[in-house]
Amino acid sequence: MTDATVAVRSDGSDVRIRIGGEVDLENAGDVEDQLAAAIPNETSAVTLELAELEYLDSAGLRVLFALAARLEVLQIELRVDVPPGSHTRRVLQLSGFESLASLEA
């Protein structure tokens, strides 16, 4: 079994979500549910912190694309903090995710 952690911090209308561990086919549904529950409609911005994310497969990538699409419909800004040179950053760049959210260091 793979483990993923999702930790949520709210600061007024901004929400910061730290995702760690591994997000793959086995746990992507659970991670997606946790992300949906973490973002109330009155949120103005969401920041994903991915420094602790060690592995992201296509199912995990689908979760992030679905989140970005949901936030776009709700007109909620999405920011992604991901370390330069990390595996996760490379996967996001290759997938075209940068067209949905800027990747910050």
Score class of each variant (00 low, 15 high):
E52M: 00
A36T: 10
Q34N: 09
R62Y: 07
L53C: 02
E77P: 02
A59Y: 03
R9S: 10
L71D: 14
R18G: 12
E42N: 13
A37Q: 11
Y55R: 01
D30C: 01
A28I: 04
V23Y: 06
L56P: 02
A105K: 04
S102G: 11
P40T: 10
R70Q: 15
A66W: 05
E26C: 00
A45Q: 11
T43V: 08
S99R: 14
L92S: 07
R79C: 12
L64F: 13
V73R: 13
I39K: 01
N27P: 07
E22F: 00
I76N: 12
L92V: 14
L64S: 06
S44C: 09
D14V: 01
L64I: 08
N41G: 07
D11H: 04
D57Q: 02
I39G: 00
I17Q: 00
M1P: 07
V23R: 02
E72W: 06
R79E: 15
E104S: 02
S102W: 12
V82P: 04
L94C: 11
G20F: 06
V73G: 08
E77W: 04
G60Q: 02
E32S: 08
L64C: 09
Q93H: 11
V80D: 15
G85H: 05
R18Q: 14
D57S: 01
T47C: 08
A105E: 15
L61W: 07
N41W: 11
A59S: 13
L64P: 07
R89N: 06
G12H: 09
V23Q: 08
L103V: 10
L61C: 06
F97S: 11
I17F: 02
S58W: 03
D14S: 02
L78E: 15
A37W: 00
R18M: 13
I19N: 01
R89C: 11
N41P: 10
D57V: 03
S99G: 14
A37H: 05
R9A: 11
L103R: 05
V82Q: 03
S102V: 12
S44T: 14
T2L: 06
A51H: 06
S44R: 06
S86N: 09
D81Q: 11
S95V: 15
S44G: 06
E98P: 02
N27F: 08
D33T: 07
E26D: 08
F97L: 13
A28R: 05
E77Q: 11
S102T: 12
D14P: 00
R9I: 08
